[in-house]
Design a binder for these strands. Structure first.
Length: 403
DNA sequence: GTCAATTCACATGAAAGAGACCACGGTCTAGTG
DNA sequence: CTAGACCGTGGTCTCTTTCATGTGAATTGACGA
């Protein structure tokens, strides 16, 4: 494009009225002023945490609910209020929020403890120190504060995935090591199964209290969306019935409000790109498709080369046969492909795990079946949402420098 | 025909290694007064 | 004498490999009717 034309384009872009009044309202990190349909949970949480203000240790709390049901929102809301009150009255209450899913920040025992110690102003190197020592540093720092610490661990299930890590156990026991300070754990999880197969010692102390967030139903979602839309869009930008449809979509997917908002935002973005002034239901459908595809493409392109090669092998065989594929065949082709690209092939053991990971990511469907005398294997099929992206295979081939 | 044993082709688990990253303390070296 | 370079040791973390064990139904073959 010519440079002059481009600046013209930007001029035009700026002069165009945006469909959005305030796009932030639709972003997932936005905190609304009031949280709908969660009064009960919020007051429960507030009740449980309130003793902190009297310098008593609140019970450990376990919060469970599906994604997009307002767990994190409600907890942080209550925590903020507590912090506020504590600040006004100069009470020694400290709140720390950590998302255990964040890579490189809090996804291992060492990192989590290190991050906690940093919250208390300690310099902790990203690696190199024994975990034990960081643990001590943190304990001492906390003890010196002479405070009640409310530690909110979001997506706490990530921590339990490593069976070797004793972190949850250590955290529940940490109070016995301290003279002045006390720590309360608030675990947020979207899988209830997680609590089930927890170490019983940990489970009993972590789940002293629990609060459950039920999914929103379509009506509630509708209400929430409408409220946000009032802030997010100019009047009359949304077609009649759009919000209703959108909330119906999301309600179908276990009442995920976050998803509903994303859907709405993307739909509006598409409409905007088409230079339209109204968002229609057709946009909603396209948005759903786009979100799904973008997610897939993103997942695929960010995989390591070895993984991409394995996926490529699966796609080739699946396409050629248009029938389910078995692990052995995939491994054979994969080894061939490795030769072509001068990559050292992984062992079958590893490939088996990788296939399992692909399944988890939703790129493929893999089911373990037994073919009787002919052994046991995974029956693999490429997920429809992946095979519906036409350029993907070519993209992969190019990226892997395959002919 | 019936039933238990066998067998296949992987799945699944556990443990340990490799290599990248990092802190810390000790030793060497070169520059300075 | 001292600041900075360099090295060895010991730590975390992720990705892999190695070794071992598990698994479920088609197949097989012995057995009795």
């Amino acid at each position: 494009m010519e440079q002059k034309g481009l600046s013209g384009f930007f001029e035009q872009f700026l002069s165009k009225e945006s469909l959005f009044k305030n796009k932030q309202v639709l972003q997932s990190n936005y905190t609304p002023e009031e949280i709908s349909y969660r009064d009960e949970q919020i007051s429960q949480i507030a009740n449980i945490l309130a003793p902190a203000l009297r310098k008593e240790r609140p019970s450990n709390l376990f919060v469970y609910g599906k994604t997009g049901t307002g767990k994190t929102l409600s907890i942080t809301y209550v925590a903020k209020q507590i912090e506020e009150v504590a600040r006004q009255r100069e009470l020694p209450v400290k709140v720390v929020y950590l998302n255990c899913k964040l890579k490189k920040i809090a996804d291992t025992e060492y990192r989590l403890i290190a991050q906690l110690a940093r919250e208390f102003g300690k310099e902790i190197p990203p690696t190199g120190l024994p975990t034990e020592e960081v643990y001590n540093i943190f304990c001492n720092a906390l003890d010196q504060e002479n405070a009640i610490l409310l530690l909110i661990l979001d997506e706490i299930d990530e921590l339990a995935k490593r069976p070797t890590d004793e972190i949850l156990y250590n955290l529940t026991r940490i109070n016995t090591d301290m003279k002045n300070s006390q720590l309360s754990l608030i675990g947020i999880s979207n899988s209830l199964i997680f609590a089930e197969n927890l170490d019983p010692r940990v489970k009993s102390s972590l789940c002293e209290e629990d609060v459950i967030f039920a999914p929103y139903n379509a009506l509630q979602l509708q209400h929430i969306l409408k409220k946000r839309c009032l802030e997010a869009f100019h009047e009359g930008t949304l077609e009649e019935g759009l919000v209703e449809k959108c909330s119906a979509y999301a309600a179908r997917e276990h009442g995920d409000a976050r998803r509903a908002l994303e859907l709405l935002r993307v739909a509006a973005e598409i409409a905007e790109r088409d230079s339209l002034v109204k968002v229609t239901i057709a946009h909603l459908d396209r948005a759903e498709e786009k979100i799904e595809k973008d997610k897939m493409v993103d997942i695929v392109t960010t995989q390591p080369r070895q993984f991409q090669l394995i996926l490529y092998a699966i796609m080739i065989i699946y396409e050629k046969r248009n029938k389910n594929v078995f692990t052995g065949e995939v491994y054979e082709l994969y080894k061939d492909l490795c030769q072509q690209t001068a990559l050292r092939p992984l062992t079958q053991r590893r490939v088996s795990d990788v296939v399992g990971e692909f399944d988890m990511l939703g790129l493929i469907n893999a089911k373990v079946i037994s073919k009787g005398r002919y052994g046991r294997t995974r029956e693999i099929s490429v997920s429809p949402s992946l095979s519906s992206i036409p350029r993907l295979k070519k993209m992969l081939a190019e990226e892997l420098a395959l002919s």
